[in-house]
C-alpha cells in the first residue's frame, strides 16, 4: 500500500451545508472518496491510500486539477483507491464535492 498526502490552499470554502460525504466503493478500477468539512476554509488536505505504487505524479496532477475546479476549501479528503483510472478519480471527486454542496 502506498500512502500519498497533498495539501492545497484554496481561494474559498466549499459551498453547501453538508459536513460529510462518502461516495464510491473500493473495488477494482474504482475508489471511495470521503469528504469531511473539518479544516480552515482556505485549506484542503488530501490523503490517498493506493495499492498501485509509482503513480505519484498522476495523482498530484489530478488532485491539483480538482482543487482548481472545485475550490474545496475547508474539506479533508480521504481516498481509498482500488486502482481507478484518473478520469474515474476526477469524476468521483466532483460527485463527492457536489454532494457536500447539497443541503444538510
Amino acid at each position: 500500500m502506498d500512502r500519498l498526502q497533498f495539501s492545497h490552499e484554496t481561494p474559498r470554502a466549499l459551498g453547501g451545508g453538508r459536513d460529510q460525504a462518502i461516495l464510491g466503493v473500493v473495488a477494482s478500477g474504482n475508489l471511495e472518496v470521503l469528504m469531511e468539512r473539518v479544516l480552515e476554509p482556505d485549506r484542503c488536505e488530501i490523503e490517498i491510500t493506493t495499492p498501485l505504487g509509482g503513480y505519484d505524479a498522476v495523482w498530484e496532477a489530478v488532485i491539483a486539477d480538482f482543487v482548481e475546479r472545485a475550490a474545496p476549501g475547508g474539506v479533508r479528503i480521504s481516498i481509498n483507491d482500488g486502482g481507478a483510472q484518473p478520469d474515474t478519480v476526477m469524476l468521483r471527486l466532483l460527485q463527492a464535492a457536489r454532494m457536500m454542496e447539497g443541503q444538510s
Binding site: E32, N80, D81
Partner: peptide
Amino acid sequence: RETSPHLPLFDLPRAFD
C-alpha cells in the same frame, strides 16, 4: 475509520466502513 486491521497484511485496500 474503523477499517480492517488484517487486509494490509495481504496488500489489499481497505474501506472506511
